[in-house]
Write a protein that binds this DNA or RNA. Sequence first.
DNA 1: CGCGAAACTGACACGCGTGTCAGCAGGCGG
DNA 2: CCGCCTGCTGACACGCGTGTCAGTTTCGCG
Lengths: 206, 206
Amino acid sequence: MNREERRTQLLTRAREVFAKRGYHAARIDDIIEAAGVARGTFYLYFDDKRGVFEELVDRFLTRLHLSILRIDVTAPVPPQVRENIRRVLELFLADRAMTKILLTDAPGLDSEFDRKLKSVYDVVLSLLADSLAEGQALAIVADGDPRVYAYLTVGAMKELLYQAVQQGMGEADAPRLGEQVYAFLRHGYLKLPERPARAPARKPRA
Amino acid sequence: MNREERRTQLLTRAREVFAKRGYHAARIDDIIEAAGVARGTFYLYFDDKRGVFEELVDRFLTRLHLSILRIDVTAPVPPQVRENIRRVLELFLADRAMTKILLTDAPGLDSEFDRKLKSVYDVVLSLLADSLAEGQALAIVADGDPRVYAYLTVGAMKELLYQAVQQGMGEADAPRLGEQVYAFLRHGYLKLPERPARAPARKPRA
DNA sequence: CGCGAAACTGACACGCGTGTCAGCAGGCGG
DNA sequence: CCGCCTGCTGACACGCGTGTCAGTTTCGCG
């Protein structure tokens, strides 16, 4: 096996191990065992566990960026928003291992690891917050702090994806979940009158 | 210092340490140093690190349960929902250490710890999903899978609280954030026409 | 006082995962 | 068939945090 093949193999196996045991609990021994390789070999290709992790994250982030398309305001907006949501969900659901890694592991043991993970979320949150601020200028996003909207949105999607992956869903479920997320961001789900009313909520006439 | 005082003191210090370093990264040495006590003393009061953690979580969960009141359908509903949201936010924001612990730490290193943390979320998610299903029967919650709504809601609030605590907010911010969450669950924030339209969204007549 | 109980101490042995490094294939060109 | 290069090996020493336990201090009561 040549250098490039071996490297790729190690990356793949490491991803599986991280997904299965969690980054912190994963030992180098787990990775080399999965790859059928001796301890020393691993260190010929990566500095340490974090080295593999960073490469995996970088590759995934690139794909995430590519899956989000800028809204073209001269064309109908809703389908573009729906498609963006669907594509993001699809990307995560198609790579369940990376989804588990990104949504399950938490900071605390390795400050470099922490920084990496935090940087991922900062990028995503800023990207979204900026888009929402633009959307407000175009009057397609309600008034309010766009960063707060970004937190709520990212949090909602994180939890949904986490649960979806836990329950064994795959990319085939992306369109269905996407519709639910879209509907949620579009109307919320509480059907309550604006002002306190005496009677229980009554369907407003369409 | 008598037994009860010492125990409480250790719990308090441990909570601070967990919040600061994260559960997994926290060492017994950090806790005993914070408490000004020798290593052996710690083990006179708790079996191990997880023992302290479980007690902290149990105490907090009790308070969380108390802060959520059942909706009384014979009274106006919206203020009750708003107040529930506000009280939950307030509880978390008032105990920033526990908030960090519950929202920052992840499973992976200690399977007993994992179970505990997972059980917390399962309880919260089921509670919410059941309430939402009841809400659907009362026509105050939109149709759709109540578990999905629960995931979206819990995820959104987790992320918001995490960011709020990171940014140093306190219980005083609960009412403001509560209003934003309520508005979000009530209408969402996307102002897009239902069907693709040529013109930008127009306010439907109230 | 003096004595027993309660609270506390901290050096130590242990387990566990890491990173290293001196050395072992084996294929290939000369 | 030798020498070399590329790829691989795995025993080992090390650092770190844990849990223990034989021993010390402090308290309060008779």
